[in-house]
Nucleic acid binder design. Structure first.
Length: 583
RNA sequence: GCCACCUUAGCUCAGCGGUAGAGCUACAGUUUUGUAAACUGUGGGCCGUCGGUUCAAAUCCGACAGGUGGCUCCA
């Protein structure tokens, strides 16, 4: 109970901070127009239309004034108004965005309420804002506030609307909590995949090809290990991998509908003096493959898998690290099923995803079921049955999920798995989508046991999502210290001095023959330095060999994860459970 | 694409009107090392690019490029 009360409290406190910020902004710019100022995780923001662009120094000034307002211990007073009177009032003070908001609320028949900030001594009204509420009683109850950053944001989130200036802030009950939060942000930066990618020599970007990753040898090992893992699962789960072209005549995209809806995102190329494009997704290629041979109901479910590289010409501002790139590889598959096989196949996909997310990587993830959007194709019954199938499968798999109403693809509903990065931004990774439309567009058929022709349903699914994005999240998840099967260098042999290089090489050869990714650090450095270097590159096992090991014909093994050292025979080390691949 | 900020050696960063610095890395030598940094020396930069202001620009202004944080979009 007290926990719940506390949560409401901090929400109210953060919301109150937004009002205090708005008051400070109005003092700095009396002509400022207020938009909205909600709470968010760890804080709040407020959008303003201002006479000039804010500079970082403004934040310090505003923060100072906020502290004054807090010190004044202004009272929050609620007052309700009829909609028309509210509009009249807001027009009189020139708050056009608020007028628009009230007009919306009026339609919904909601009560219109205002919150006033009143001075405790003389009752002078310092600030008033349209607000649904939940505020503290007094500004003095606000704990520790810090304004974090300025950003642009469109009014009502629509790019056709004017861009407002958004101020983000964080607020906590105490200074200690605030400091702890700031410290956590610093820690999170150390996990950032872009930083670790460079530090560990995994990948780089280059100005010459913005949005496309150069995987360095070490990063390529991780990439390929992920592929090997998937391929081994594909074998068990009866997927058929294909290799497909990258460039296609625009005729294909016209048939699939991409030319109409997705053209700006496609890299156009010239082929035989005809318009063509690099593929942004695999679906049409797989439709073509499906049609290359006559299909019978005995062929279904047909699971076609593809690791082809995809290109999407994302706008510059959307690019960022490996989470949003222009060239990427999906662990993509299109599964062709008869309608009655749909539910089972969705369950198979979810089971596969669950295995990867929980058993292999131990991720914390959230699942969303996205339902029919306003603009959609297909019949009511198809949508209902597809949504039902997805929901049933999630329940059977015992996966909690939230419903994202109206957020499905135009061709069908979908399940998304989302994972947070180190800065707590959510990224969609796995997706399972039901599609009734693509088979119609491509006139896909199969011969049923009844001797008649039927149309299959397509399940689009990717489990890692894009390998680039997945790797980014993996790097942050493990903070660069990968499990042995993914580690670019699994074992590093450290001779105590040059005298033991021969033994080190001998041992290393055995590791190599056992299939391990191993190296000898025979640099002219002290053992301490070699250990430090190995620690910094997060190698799972360091093998120290010197006089003792040569004499006893054994190894001293230092474990990165536990930081413990253990003396053991070479065979004993090679038999370690942790060295085994999960596939 | 929109708003703001950032860009100095391979990496991390200092310098912020008087003409370039540190640590790590790299290379060479000395040292032969026992669990998170041995010592000495040497390299390495058209200070993102192009224009402008100035006697003088890494430093001020502008454009462009790339990056970062948001918005829109999205795997």
């Amino acid at each position: 109970m007290s926990k719940i009360e506390k949560k409401v409290d901090i929400e109210a406190m953060r919301h109150s901070c937004a009002h205090v910020l708005a008051q400070a902004v109005l003092r700095m710019f009396p002509e400022a127009k207020l938009a909205i100022g909600p709470t968010i995780e760890n804080g709040f923001y407020y959008d303003f239309d201002l006479p000039r662009t804010l500079i970082p120094e403004d934040l310090a000034l505003l923060e100072k004034d906020m502290k004054n307002i807090i010190k004044q211990d202004q009272r929050f007073v609620r007052r309700e108004e009829p909609a028309d009177k509210a509009i009249e009032f807001l027009q009189s003070i020139g708050q056009k965005y608020k007028v628009e908001l009230v007009e919306g609320l009026k339609e919904g028949g909601e009560t219109i309420s205002f919150y006033e900030n009143v001075m405790p001594n003389d009752g002078k009204v310092m600030f008033v804002d349209l607000c649904r509420g939940n505020h503290l009683d007094r500004t003095g109850e606000i704990g520790a506030v810090k304004l974090m950053k300025i950003a642009g944001a469109y009014w009502k989130g629509d790019e056709k609307n004017p861009m407002l200036q958004r101020i983000y802030g964080t607020a906590w009950n105490t200074k200690e909590e605030l400091d702890e939060h700031l410290k956590q942000l610093e820690e999170a930066k150390k996990r950032d995949h872009r930083r670790l990618g460079t530090a560990l020599g995994l990948f780089q970007f280059h100005d010459i090809s913005p949005g496309s990753v150069f995987f360095l040898p070490k990063g390529t090992i991780i990439f390929n290990e992920l592929l090997s893992f998937l391929r081994s699962e594909y074998r068990k789960r009866n997927y058929k991998e294909v290799v497909t072209p990258l460039v296609y005549d625009k005729a294909l995209w016209e048939q699939s509908g991409h030319w109409e809806h997705y053209k700006e995102n496609m890299f156009q190329v010239n082929m035989d003096d005809k318009e063509a494009s690099l593929k942004p997704m695999n679906c049409p290629s797989h439709m073509l493959i499906y049609k290359m041979e006559t299909k019978s109901y005995r062929d279904l479910p047909l699971r076609i898998a593809d690791f082809a590289m995809l290109h999407r010409n994302e706008v510059r501002g959307a690019l960022g690290g490996m989470t949003r790139v222009r060239k990427f590889c999906m662990d993509d598959s299109h599964i062709f099923v008869a309608e009655e096989q749909l539910e089972q196949e969705i369950l198979n996909c979810i089971d596969f995803a669950k295995y990867i997310y929980e058993d292999i990587f131990d991720f914390t993830y959230e699942v969303c079921l996205s339902t029919r959007p306003e603009k959609s194709m297909g019949t009511e019954e198809q949508w209902a049955s597809a949504e039902k199938a997805l929901e049933k499968a999630l329940n059977k798999a015992n996966i909690p999920f939230t419903i994202n109403a109206g957020d499905g693809a135009f061709y069908g509903p979908k399940i998304d798995f989302r994972i947070k990065d180190s800065l707590k931004r959510e990224w969609q990774c796995a997706t399972v989508q039901v599609d009734f439309q693509m088979p119609l567009r491509f006139q896909l058929e199969f011969e049923g046991s009844d001797g008649k022709s039927h149309t299959p349903v397509v399940v689009h699914r990717a489990l890692l999502g894009s390998l680039e994005r997945f790797m980014a999240i993996l790097i942050e998840h493990y903070a660069g210290a990968f499990p042995v099967w993914l580690a670019p260098v699994q074992v590093l042999v450290l001779p105590v001095s040059e005298k033991f290089n021969d033994y080190a090489n001998e041992v290393n050869k055995k590791f190599f023959d056992a299939g391990l990714r191993c190296e000898v650090d025979d640099s002219n450095e002290t053992l301490g330095k070699k250990i430090r270097n190995a620690e910094m590159s997060k190698v799972p096992y360091m093998i120290v060999v010197g006089e003792k090991e040569v004499a006893d014909k054994n190894l001293t093994v230092r474990d990165y994860a536990t930081k413990k050292q253990e003396v053991m025979a070479l065979e004993e080390f090679l038999a370690l459970e942790t060295l085994k691949k999960p596939y």
